[in-house]
Amino acid sequence: MLLSCTDVRKTFGANVVLDNLSLDVAEHEVVALIGASGSGKSTLLRCVNLLTEIDDGVVRLDGEDITDPRVDPDLVRQKIGLVFQSYNLFPHMTVLDNITLAPVRVHKRPVAEARSQAMEWLSRVGLADKSGSYPDRLSGGQQQRVAIVRALVNSPRLLLLDEVTSALDPELVGEVLTMIRELKGEGMTMVLATHEMGFARQVADRVAFLDKGRVLEQGPPSQVLGDPAEARTRQFLARIIEAGRL
């Protein structure tokens, strides 16, 4: 297993956000996390990236316990990419500087090499002409694609995507989803929290339905989304269909 979460627990005050949750992700696998707001999807991703400290349980990456306090979180994060719902690009840097910041400052790569690699990525996603622009001159879809490239240039073992299309206008969702689909084709291991059920069905190898901080049900998309075993899953999907999102 590339990523293995065992009995992970996280509480905010009296609110139990992750209730002894367990989830395994194999190399090259794409797992979609679905579930209502507050079911723990984003918190799980933040815990895996060590941005949030867990209260109990173990998270292993490549067999190494990364939740051990003796582990340097900066080294772990260099192996895990995280893309945020609200892009979180650095507004005072150009697109190119956003992308090359970590390769140059963290991985100590030569500036010219980091820049040419970044330009390669930008032309791949059709944003080469935006390399000198500041993020506020870009559309939401363009910003999110830059944010994904920013995570990818560090060659992460695992990419975490936290509702990356939720803040986008409907006509901009497609360009981001196309990019994620291509990454899957290249064998990138991904865990994505999403509200796009149609997309989860297309791209995910496995869908995990989170409810009250637990994985209530998981399996192939056709089963979890098409013929769920749990009543709570059926309820959730019925509400999604009602809202026209499936």
Binding site: N49, D74, R77, P91, H92, L101
Partner: peptide
């Protein structure tokens, strides 16, 4: 805080996050 989270998620240390992400925005 999301700016700090983004920088830390890229593997930047606290010091580098301050130097390259927080202070330039703060001083401006």
């Amino acid at each position: 805080p999301s700016q700090v989270a983004a920088a830390r998620s890229l593997g930047l240390s606290y010091r580098r996050t301050m130097r390259h992400v927080v202070l330039p925005q703060a001083i401006r």
